[in-house]
């Protein structure tokens, strides 16, 4: 940067020179290769700054719009909660325990239901058997619709044998 017009080139790009000065600098840049390169560098640099500035502005505007439409607070599901590692581990164990308990209890319930069904079937069978036995031993098997009778009779010797526990004769 040996040219004394280098600083003026920067001012020209920024539009900070008077019309006369700008005309004379432009005439110089047209002849000075160093200044031409300088102008190019300035313009490129300026473009980069403009691009980065316009991206940040756009992002800020978008955020402002989102805050306006949704609300100032961010949603709960988007929030992060920081937990100490031991608490997180305990919670993890609890969750695993609950899952195991749920699975075991479901299996047990299923087992119990099966046992209950078996017992019900068994008790029904027993009831039927009992009813059959009752029907067999019930005195109603002698009932053929006859009228009750009563009479006195000479004592039979079988009565004496019954006293001694004889069931049949």
């Amino acid at each position: 940067m040996d040219c004394k017009f280098a600083e003026k080139t920067s001012l020209l790009i920024d539009g900070e020179l008077s019309l006369e000065e700008a005309e004379s600098i432009k005439a110089h840049i047209a002849e000075c290769s160093e200044c031409q390169q300088m102008e190019k560098d300035f313009l490129y640099f300026r473009q980069q700054i403009q691009e980065s500035v316009s991206g940040a502005v756009w992002e800020a505007r978008e955020k402002a719009q989102t805050a306006h439409f949704i609300g100032r607070k961010s949603p709960l599901w988007k929030k992060w909660i920081s937990l100490p590692a031991p608490v997180f581990t305990a919670l993890l164990f609890l969750l695993a325990g609950f899952g195991a308990w749920a699975i075991i209890s479901t299996i047990n319930r299923h087992k119990n239901l099966t046992v209950a069904e078996e017992l019900t079937e068994k008790s029904l069978l027993e009831k039927e058997n009992r009813q059959t036995i009752l029907n067999e031993i019930s005195l109603s098997r002698f009932d053929r619709g006859g009228r009750a009778e009563i009479y006195a009779t000479r004592r039979q010797p079988s009565i004496e044998s019954d006293k001694h526990g004889s069931d049949t004769r």
Binding site: L139, A148, E149, I150, A152, I159
Partner: peptide, 28 residues
Amino acid sequence: HTLILGFDENIVLLPFGRNSGGSGNETL
């Protein structure tokens, strides 16, 4: 019924009456 009973007699009560004739016709 009125029954005069000696001690060499007994009373027979047939609750369902007499079931006579036929096989298995047992009387209580």
